[in-house]
C-alpha cells in the first residue's frame, strides 16, 4: 500500500465507480487489485458487473438530452473547465502516475500536460466541428437545404489499455463534445487513475451521467454492452479480433454504430496525430433539412 511516514498512517482512498454523478460501489460487491510495477498492492478497485453497466446506461440516457441541449458554447466551457480542474490537481495525477504506474517523473508530467491540452483542444471543437462538418447544400430546386451533425446518443467506450490518464481523455473528449453521453469501461494496469479523473469531472460542472466510468473486465462487459438495446454506439480501443467479432455480431440487432480505434505507439500518445476532429464523426448522425423557398415570380416580384 501507499507509503506512510514513520509517525503518521496515510489515509487510503476507496476507489468506487462513477455512475450518474455519484460514486457507488459495484452492486456485485466484487473487487480487483491494482499493483505498481514492483508488484506492490496500490489499490483495491471495483469489478463492475452487468447490472452496473445497465445502471450506467440508464444514467447516461437520462443525462443525454440535457447535455445535447446545452449550447455548444456551454459544452466548450465545461470541457475547458475540466481542463482547468485537472491542471489544478496536476501534482496529484503526476504522483499517482509515478507511484502507482511507475512512470518516470518527467514522463508523468508530460502525460498530464498532454491530457490537459487535449481537453482544451477538444473543448474548442464543440462550437466549431458543426461548422466544419455541416454543409449548406445547393440543391437544383427552389429549396433551402442544410446538413448538420447531431450526437448519436448513448455511447459505450472500451478505454485504451495504455496511457492510464491521457488514454482516457483521448477516448472521452471526442465522444462527449458533440453532446453524447458516455459509459467508459476501463480495463488497464492502473484503473484507479480513471476514478481519480472522475473526481475531476465531478467538480467541473459536467452534468452527472454524461460520463460514467466503470472499472472491471472487458471480457465480462463486452458481450453485455454489445447486446444492450439502449446503447446507440460502441467505441473500442485496442480491441482483439475476438472482441471485434463479438461486438459486431451482437451490435447488429439494434444496428449499433461500432468504431474500433487503435491506440498510438507509446511515444505518440501526446502527438497531434492522436487527436482529430474526425474522431468526433463516428458518434454523430447527420441530419438534412429541406424547406421550399417562396417563388418570387408567384409573388409578382420583378427580379
Amino acid at each position: 500500500m501507499a507509503k506512510s511516514t514513520p509517525t503518521r498512517l496515510r489515509v487510503l482512498k476507496t476507489f468506487k465507480l462513477y455512475i450518474g454523478g455519484a460514486f457507488p460501489r459495484t452492486e456485485s460487491g466484487r473487487f480487483l487489485q491494482e499493483h505498481n510495477p514492483k508488484g506492490q498492492l496500490v489499490a483495491n478497485f471495483c469489478r463492475a458487473s452487468r447490472k452496473d453497466l445497465r445502471n450506467s446506461v440508464v444514467a447516461a440516457r437520462k443525462a443525454q438530452p440535457g447535455w445535447a441541449g446545452r449550447t455548444p458554447f456551454n459544452r466548450a466551457q465545461i470541457l475547458y473547465r475540466m481542463a482547468e480542474v485537472l491542471e489544478s490537481r496536476r501534482e496529484s495525477f503526476e504522483s499517482a502516475l509515478a507511484e502507482r504506474a511507475g512512470i518516470k517523473s518527467a514522463d508523468a508530467q508530460a502525460e498530464v500536460d498532454a491530457a490537459i491540452d487535449r481537453l482544451v483542444w477538444y473543448a474548442g471543437w464543440a462550437d466549431k466541428f458543426v461548422q466544419i462538418m455541416g454543409t449548406t447544400n445547393p440543391v437544383a430546386s427552389p429549396h433551402f437545404n442544410i446538413t448538420s451533425p447531431e450526437p448519436t446518443g448513448v455511447v459505450t467506450a472500451f478505454a485504451p489499455r495504455s496511457a492510464p490518464l491521457l488514454g482516457l481523455i483521448t477516448a472521452i473528449a471526442p465522444v462527449i463534445v458533440s453532446g453524447n453521453a458516455l459509459v467508459l469501461v476501463v480495463e488497464n494496469e492502473h484503473p484507479s487513475i480513471a476514478i481519480d479523473l472522475a473526481e475531476v469531472f465531478h467538480c467541473s460542472d459536467l452534468p452527472g451521467g454524461v460520463v460514467n466510468i466503470l472499472t472491471g473486465l472487458r471480457e465480462e462487459l463486452v458481450p453485455h454492452a454489445a447486446k444492450h438495446m439502449d446503447i446507440d454506439a460502441i467505441a473500442t480501443f485496442d480491441a482483439t479480433d475476438e472482441e471485434r467479432r463479438l461486438i459486431a455480431l451482437e451490435a447488429a440487432e439494434s444496428v449499433k454504430r461500432v468504431h474500433n480505434f487503435e491506440s498510438p505507439a507509446k511515444h505518440d500518445w501526446a502527438q497531434a496525430s492522436a487527436q482529430s476532429p474526425y474522431n468526433i464523426l463516428p458518434f454523430v448522425e447527420f441530419k438534412t433539412a429541406w424547406h421550399p423557398i417562396e417563388s418570387g415570380a408567384a409573388m409578382g416580384a420583378k427580379y
Binding site: V139, S141, S254
Partner: peptide
C-alpha cells in the same frame, strides 16, 4: 436523417441521405 419542412420526398445529389437508429 432527413426532415422535409413543408415538402416531402425531395432528392438531390448535393443533399446527404441516410438514417438514424435502425
Amino acid at each position: 436523417g432527413i426532415v422535409w419542412g413543408n415538402t416531402y420526398n425531395r432528392f438531390d445529389p448535393t443533399s446527404p441521405f441516410g438514417g438514424y437508429k435502425e
